[in-house]
Nucleic acid binder design. Structure first.
Lengths: 159, 159
DNA sequence: GTGCGTGCAAAGTCTTTGCAAACCG
DNA sequence: CGGTTTGCAAAGACTTTGCACGCAC
């Protein structure tokens, strides 16, 4: 979908909940649309926009991300690196995506797999819990780190 | 399994990696064994042991939990409440368990479902990623909060 | 115009670290 | 006895907040 169309949708969603579509909010959302990296921390966003917008403070970035999360425009993620990360919440995605986190180098790769529908029913029945969303994270080793691990293990065994 | 047997196993695992089984480490592990609550933050552990062991500092609790995590004696969890939580890593559990996090009241319920084996193969093949572990979190509403939500929605609609 | 939103700096919360003393093995 | 581990306090990292000013609607 075209970026400008997405922005219009986001604007609408902000307005219809009676929040103001300020320049700052637009710029922050634009950063997500423009960034090659999908998983941005508050500091990342701040760095991305700061050169062209030195007047936007870090606190505003935090407050905007918090707002966007509550409006479900973005999703708050935790990859265990001590800071929150955010990604645009693509409601149109038929299959939700998840994250493979490399324990060696920290690289995060996305992975599609949708099993919510089946599980929603199962969990609802068994636990009296109405599932709204879920997060699935895999921890492992990417091919590069896996290779390094093997080399490392061989060295240890050779001692 | 008996608590004392578990403790012996934990002791062994610490010793065989050439770490010392100090009184502090034992007391912290014991807190997990004794606590009814499975998901403890560093502060929780500190509070649990502080009355009987006022000499154990919070920094030691943090350092121990970090060590235990690296030794895979405990698992580090994030429920989005701004602090890390830890639970004993039960390697004997045939089926791993996951967490249902109530968006209304924050209650966390455990839920068993094992699908790692199938997915491990699939992910390995498709993404060149060797999966070691995974975390699955569901967000939703427990029966109490769901009921409150419904009441709330009715009120809003009645306006 | 009015009230929500922002910038700045200060404060808050959780976690880590430096160092001398204590302790495990 | 020697290298780990600990306690304490201080520092660090990320995030939130108070307040006066500014801007969207």
């Amino acid at each position: 979908m075209k970026k400008s169309v997405i922005m219009t949708t986001l604007k609408k969603k902000i307005r219809e909940r009676n929040y103001k579509f300020t320049m700052q909010r637009q710029i922050i959302l634009q950063a997500f649309l423009d960034s090659k990296e999908n998983h941005l921390s508050a500091e990342d966003v701040f760095a991305l926009i700061h050169d062209s917008n030195p007047d936007i403070g870090l606190a505003t970035v935090y407050r905007s991300l918090e707002l966007f999360t509550s409006l479900e425009l973005v999703k708050k993620l935790d990859f265990g690196d001590g800071r929150n990360r955010y990604e645009l919440n693509d409601h149109n995605l038929a299959h939700s995506h998840h994250h493979l986190i490399c324990l060696g180098c920290g690289k995060v790769v996305e992975f599609s797999y949708n099993f919510l529908d089946d599980l929603k029913k199962k969990v609802k029945k068994e636990n009296a819990f109405n599932i709204v969303d879920y997060q699935l994270k895999f921890y492992g080793y990417c091919s590069v780190c896996e290779k390094n691990n093997l080399v490392q293990r061989k060295k240890i065994l050779a001692r």
